[in-house]
Computed example of a mutant assay.
Amino acid sequence: MTESPELVTYRLEPALADRDDGTAMVAYLTLNDPDRRNALSDALLDQLSGLLRRAGSDSQVRVIVLTSSHPRIFSSGGNLDAFADDRPTITKYEGLNRFPNLFRTLTEIDKPIVCAANGDVLAGALGIALACDLIIAKSSIRLGCPEINVGAFPFMISALIFRATGRLIANELMMTGRLIDAFEAAAAGLVNKVVDDAEFDDTVRQWVAGIAVKSPLLLGMGKRALAATRDLPMDSALDYLQAQLALAFTTEDLAEGVRAFKEKRAPQWRNA
């Protein structure tokens, strides 16, 4: 029996360069199907979802980084061969839950997830990137939704694009299929930071290290609160957030953070 190819690789590295004691790790999940430009096949999506859950359940992992092994492409998006094959429609329909389930997984994991966009982020891959918490992009990459050019439409990822940028920009990307460079994407609110290619890896590590020293407990509470309140009316959101702040006051990490700040020392998080 032939083993399934490793379409997503998983490796752990110390999150802090000066602390290799295994207590603060970063999980790197690397899309690894370069011959097909990391097309989002069913097999790749299944492996990615499984590895995300693995990283999410590992108490030593502080930050998750999603990146690519391809020298120029993060991912070309959905598998076009699957769009036009002769499988029965019901068979294709059964697999449609992979994208929304992956987006939900990225949102529901308590740990910060950084998309290290080291290549072009296209079509469905743009949805994956936008479902992450932060996006760092190489200055040389392009982003966009070219699906309309092959007679498709980015139905599933439209929900994420509309939550990341304005309606008119979102419509332009989806209706014209135009690709934009990293700087235009940053101006539109689609990426956090654009970095020169030569400085990209170091910048990603710096961001990861900066996040890793924060309280894992409070980061997790904060991420859940953001997801829960993003689409609520203001009054409902404020009520929910007040309850979360009250809960935060009961944690040892909040008190420890204040003590460490006053004593000018690094905090010792309770659940680290």
Rank of each mutant, 00 (worst) to 15 (best):
204 V>C: 05
204 V>W: 04
204 V>S: 08
204 V>A: 11
206 Q>E: 12
206 Q>M: 01
206 Q>I: 08
207 W>A: 03
208 V>L: 01
209 A>M: 04
210 G>Y: 03
211 I>F: 11
212 A>P: 03
212 A>V: 02
212 A>T: 07
213 V>K: 09
213 V>W: 06
213 V>E: 08
213 V>A: 06
214 K>F: 05
214 K>L: 09
214 K>D: 00
215 S>W: 07
216 P>H: 04
217 L>R: 07
217 L>G: 01
217 L>W: 01
218 L>V: 10
218 L>M: 12
220 G>Y: 07
220 G>W: 13
220 G>K: 02
221 M>N: 07
222 G>M: 02
222 G>V: 00
224 R>T: 07
224 R>P: 04
225 A>L: 00
226 L>P: 05
227 A>S: 11
227 A>P: 03
227 A>C: 09
229 T>N: 05
230 R>N: 10
232 L>N: 04
232 L>S: 04
235 D>S: 10
235 D>N: 14
236 S>V: 03
236 S>G: 11
236 S>M: 11
237 A>E: 08
238 L>Y: 01
238 L>G: 00
238 L>K: 00
238 L>W: 03
239 D>W: 00
240 Y>M: 03
240 Y>S: 06
241 L>F: 09
242 Q>C: 11
243 A>L: 06
243 A>H: 13
243 A>G: 11
244 Q>W: 08
245 L>Q: 13
245 L>G: 12
247 L>D: 09
248 A>N: 05
249 F>N: 13
250 T>L: 14
250 T>M: 10
250 T>S: 13
251 T>D: 06
251 T>G: 10
251 T>I: 06
251 T>H: 10
252 E>G: 15
252 E>D: 08
252 E>F: 09
253 D>K: 08
253 D>A: 08
253 D>I: 11
253 D>R: 08
253 D>C: 09
254 L>M: 15
256 E>I: 15
257 G>V: 09
258 V>E: 13
259 R>H: 14
260 A>R: 13
261 F>H: 12
262 K>E: 14
262 K>M: 12
263 E>Q: 11
263 E>H: 14
263 E>F: 14
265 R>T: 12
267 P>E: 09
267 P>I: 07
267 P>V: 12
